[in-house]
């Protein structure tokens, strides 16, 4: 019983770290890219339509790690494999 509570508690901390650090990394990356986009658009405004597609694709790539992290966090929240090992052993 105590082991279950410990696993649940540490899993909660892990979920928080996965989502929090993933979101922080994605936000830093998006901030740097958006600053570069604005700089490029200020230098050459005629390039905005061409940069638009690239920025969207790169936003998706930067966010990919965060989205995968969210999926992993949901897996640990709803179908925790560590918890099922302990309950199967008991």
């Amino acid at each position: 019983m105590e082991a279950l509570a410990l696993i649940q508690a540490y899993t909660g901390v892990g979920i928080g770290l996965i989502i929090g650090l993933g979101a922080a990394g994605a936000c830093i990356g998006i901030g740097i890219m958006c600053a570069s986009f604005l700089e490029g658009a200020a230098r050459q405004p005629e390039m905005i339509p061409q940069l638009q597609g690239k920025v969207f694709l790169l936003l998706g790539l930067i966010d990919a790690s965060f989205i995968i992290g969210v999926g992993l966090a949901m897996m640990f929240a709803f179908a925790n494999p560590l918890l099922s090992v302990v309950t199967a052993a008991n």
């Binding site: 604005l38 905005i48 969207f56 998706g60 969210v70 179908a79």
Partner: peptide
């Protein structure tokens, strides 16, 4: 450029919300 950037960020926010909602429904 600012309008384009705001649209792109809106698109990304909508994308993340849709993905999270669909994953939540799938897991539930």
């Amino acid at each position: 450029a600012a309008t384009v950037l705001v649209n792109l960020l809106k698109a990304e926010a909508v994308k993340i919300v849709i993905i999270v909602v669909l994953l939540f429904i799938t897991f539930k």
